[in-house]
Design a binder for these strands. Structure first.
Lengths: 325, 325
DNA sequence: TTGTAAGCGTTATCAG
DNA sequence: CTGATAACGCTTACAA
């Protein structure tokens, strides 16, 4: 189908392949006006489309970057992704998105396949379970930026938010409203944001002189959450406030509450870590901790871009503050 | 960084490039156990990663497919995308997603760049404004599948839903509930689903013997929507029901209603075309028309896969029924 | 069973 | 200003 090659164009235009190549790369400087026109015509006539694969092979640069998202069903992820894509678009990079589904095996596959496809760099929301692989990339000087989650013992560019601090502030706020029995619901503590948010929660309680009650801390995967919530709400002293550690937890909790007829605002105060797209449609008084996703995405893309263009700056961790809404 | 090439492996293993190539392509049939092992070791030792770019150039097949989404902020789009990716993943295809932002210019760019990158096929949520380009692809026999939106005068594989019919049913349902003043809110009528939904709306009214009141039909872009809604709700006879033609319209409408203190269910009945992720969290009685996104995505991927593998079947349009929830 | 050599469609280096 | 010619890293007949 795409059988027209540079050689064909050259033949029709009556010039050589190299001249056509020059033309395509806009190096007209020393090019005769007449040849330029002839080539233009030939391209038009044949419907020629350059083959980027061939070019990439030669240039060892694909102008593609890969983004490996831990879980695309987080609204936060799609927001960041959008920002990354925007940046790439204005910098002549093409962004390829993959969804690791929070599965280290899949993450590994994607990293390997993207590197095999010679993408120029990678932005990763790491599962945190592939440290050897991360280390290898970094030590090979391959351009990488980590987003959302910290990776231990690795000197690498990262873009994260102040999970512990924001959580702590939010919980403190709820305490000031008079709540003492505050539950904390989170998915399995496998990645840094979850851990940091829990830390922030504990800190706020401790600072306020409230004892930490492990019955109020629920760590469960989304499918198991319902059962755990049942337990939580059959306690003698029920929580009057609940902190959902991210949007998916929020949804699970919301579903549960609805089912049980527990009224937000009246029976329970809810705080959620994450931007929720439909939040303004809910008339319940829910607090949200909003991460500056757009800026974070942009920063990550920028950092990657710099690495790709060999601007040698030492790896740094950028912490963006979150906002309580 | 990825300087290890097949030649290096061959040298270390003491065999020739072609033997290594055989090994990599799992054609061990006639390969000595000893050579196999030597190659294995060499690969391990050097940390060799094959270069897909080079392979693609030779094979004229990249094992990548492109998906051009009209607007990724529609939840429906991400759902379909997920399904497409799942299918691709199980069929050794890599999916690249691009967001055309409902902009024909961007769409054109992406189509061209993806083809230049030699992707094996394209799944497009068409803007509908690039008919020449679509036509060209089809006539060149390039594998394409259109999703969500119909393209006129083009014999091509498409996966859509029964927009007019589903809308008509939903509106009819609202009429049966006793509503007569039903508004219809839609973004600019540039693509077939919007047009078809409007058609369905009109049909339901006509069938019920209700006169179509153009004051109740709002066609506006999201930023303009608020103003138009102001007008709608300053009419003497206000609508008692409102049909939002998709999720983004729903959000705009929801925001407006909230601002105005118009209560869902009480003051206004709402029907939305599209699956909304947080719908079960809203305690207002909203009806949704749910498209079978997962099945549609899978079907689209399947159709593309068949074309890529040259299973010659004539183009067909697959219509999936939507469900009212 | 393994090696040789000719491409795939570009770009880059030098001559002319 | 333009044109040979050699890469880029891999696959694939065909030979050995």
């Amino acid at each position: 189908m795409n059988k027209v090659t540079m050689a064909d164009v050259a033949k029709v235009a009556g010039v050589s392949k190299s001249t056509v190549s020059q033309y395509l790369n806009k190096r007209y400087e020393y090019m005769g006006e007449k040849t330029k026109l002839k080539i233009e015509e030939a391209i038009e006539e044949l419907g020629y489309q350059p083959n980027f694969i061939a070019r990439s092979l030669k240039q060892k640069r694909t102008s593609m970057v890969g983004i490996i998202v831990a879980n695309i069903t987080h609204f936060f992820s799609t927001e960041i992704s959008r920002a990354i894509e925007d940046f790439c678009h204005t910098h002549d990079l093409h962004a390829i998105f993959c969804n690791a589904d929070d599965d280290p095996e899949k993450e590994k596959n994607y990293i390997e396949m993207l590197r095999a496809k010679q993408v120029d760099g990678l932005i990763i929301f790491p599962t945190g379970q592939n440290n050897d692989l991360y280390k290898k990339m970094v030590s090979q000087g391959y351009p990488v930026v980590f987003v959302d989650r910290k990776v231990e013992n690795l000197d690498v560019f990262s873009v994260i938010t102040d999970n512990a601090h924001a959580t702590s502030m939010a919980v403190q706020h709820v305490i000031e409203k008079g709540h003492r029995n505050i539950a904390f619901v989170v998915q399995p503590l496998k990645v840094s944001p979850r851990i940091d948010r829990l830390t922030g929660y504990k800190k706020a309680l401790t600072d306020a002189g409230i004892e930490i009650n492990s019955d109020y801390i629920i760590e469960a995967s989304i499918p198991d959450m319902k059962n755990k919530l049942e337990q939580l709400f059959s306690l003698e002293v029920k929580p009057t406030a609940l902190f959902a550690a991210n949007d998916r937890v929020f949804m699970a909790v919301g579903e549960f509450l609805k089912e049980k007829g527990i009224k937000l605002g009246k029976d329970l105060e809810l705080i959620v870590f994450d931007n929720i797209p439909f939040s303004h449609l809910l008339d319940s008084p829910i607090s949200f901790i909003e991460q500056p996703a757009a800026e974070m995405g942009k920063k990550a893309a920028e950092l990657l871009f710099q690495q790709i263009n060999k601007e040698d700056t030492p790896p740094e961790v950028f912490v963006f503050p979150s906002r309580i809404v």
